[in-house]
Design a protein around this nucleic acid. Structure first.
Lengths: 243, 243
DNA sequence: CGGGCCCTTGAGTGTCCTCAAGTTATGTGG
DNA sequence: CCACATAACTTGAGGACACTCAAGGGCCCG
């Protein structure tokens, strides 16, 4: 597998991402330590570990998750291309969740110490980094509100709207259908619902023709209608910085 | 009310905060736009607004909260001295939650544009800012895991452990008791439980002599025992940067 | 053809919710 | 000083939503 230069990064000109200037690309390329491919099921970052690397997802999908002492699992978020992994360890010194690959993934690798160089020499990029952290915080805030306040069908609808819009923004799939290679158990663990209940709730949404997730494909004929069930706005995601 | 210089900031030498160098203090002092006192009930920052200021809490307590379209309220976090407010608006351009004062509060005010100066001229402080954002993300991740996976009594115990340790770290109250001037409804909305159920759960903890929250004071004779009910580690909080 | 993984469906249970009433503490005006 | 109003906390009863347990079906792979 050949290493791609940041100048040819597949994330550039991809829907939601704010492109870098040529000069930034050159800087980032020096920043880049390599590339990594992982198989489904691989743990990329481990809760409690102090990984020396941070990654940007180039391709593939994964999960952020936390495990309680007695084994219960909480899925914190779905990991898609463009996401930055390991920022917590890079900044605070220790990962607070695990990141696991669900499909085969390709990752762009940076060394943690380079962060200092970035903060010293590239204030705009440091700002972008903080932007990314703040955006993550925003998303988690919404998740907290969902788990705390929304009922079963609202939760499922909310999650499907969110991930559908993210994937469509990435120009995966078509206007109505996107690939979604997770298990129902993953969604259940993300929403704090049991597998059985999640399954039955997905059936209800399918019966109402609001969302059909089967065979690894999510079909949403009318996002606005689904968003209404979710009690949320189907707002397009803002363009965001990356890397 | 006279404005305090950053050189005499009450947060310095206060338990959990990493002090600034003299030089940093001088820089921050130029950064400071003023001071603000607010009465209980005041909305300091509004969801959806684009506030031109960011604040550091010097004294008092408050709440971060989000409101769903139909009025349901989710408390995102409890706001204590040392917390930074408005970073989201400062970085991303819009607040995603409301911040409300519960007691009288005193706030240190900064202008949002100063953030740029900070990123350009003070990489260590910019790094600290990102540290704060990452820490917030970490905490919200734990909250998501709590709302998603823990049952009623575990949730309440978890929240009481967290806030008890935070307050004790700030050297409020004694070793066993700290002031906690919120309503049961606030805790209920933070944990996604009904007021009635929260009340009954607090009673159970009181009966077991694990935690007694009444008359605005939280008493925890044995943090480790309470943490065990919460299925969490009663880990001391790491020292953290501020401002 | 057997085994494993995931999805599906049914039945019974329990946690947590809503509704409702009552108590306590605090503040206000007569 | 007392009647009244308000806000928060408390307690009881009945019901709904989501959970666990259980069993069966589809699919892939060895």
């Amino acid at each position: 597998m050949k290493m791609i230069s940041c100048h040819d990064c597949p994330l550039h000109d991809c829907g939601p991402f704010i492109p870098h200037s040529e000069e930034e690309k050159t800087f980032l390329n020096g920043f880049k330590a390599g590339e990594m491919s992982v198989e489904p099921g691989t743990q990329i970052l481990l809760e409690g570990s102090n990984a020396p690397q941070i990654y940007t997802v180039l391709e593939g999908m994964g999960l952020r998750e936390k495990t309680l002492e007695d084994g219960r699992r909480q899925v914190i978020n779905f990991v898609l291309p463009g996401d930055l992994l390991g920022l917590q360890a890079g900044i605070m010194g220790e990962m607070q969740h695990t990141v696991e690959a669900v499909t085969r993934m390709r990752l762009c690798v940076f060394r943690r110490e380079s962060l200092w160089t970035l903060f010293r020499n590239r204030p705009e990029l440091a700002f972008d980094l903080t932007w990314i952290a703040a955006a993550e915080e925003h998303f988690l805030g919404e998740t907290v509100a969902t788990l705390g306040q929304r009922g079963g069908i609202e939760r499922v609808a909310w999650a499907l709207v969110k991930i559908f819009l993210r994937l469509r923004g990435l120009e995966k799939g078509t206007k109505e259908a996107v690939p979604l290679p997770y298990r129902q158990q993953d969604l259940a663990d993300a929403l704090g619902l049991s597998l059985v209940h999640t399954n039955k709730t997905l059936s209800r949404l399918r019966a109402k023709r609001l969302a059909d997730w089967s065979a690894g494909t999510l079909r949403v004929p009318d996002v606005a209608a689904l968003a209404e069930v979710a009690m949320t706005d189907p707002e397009a995601l803002p363009r965001r910085p990356f890397l």
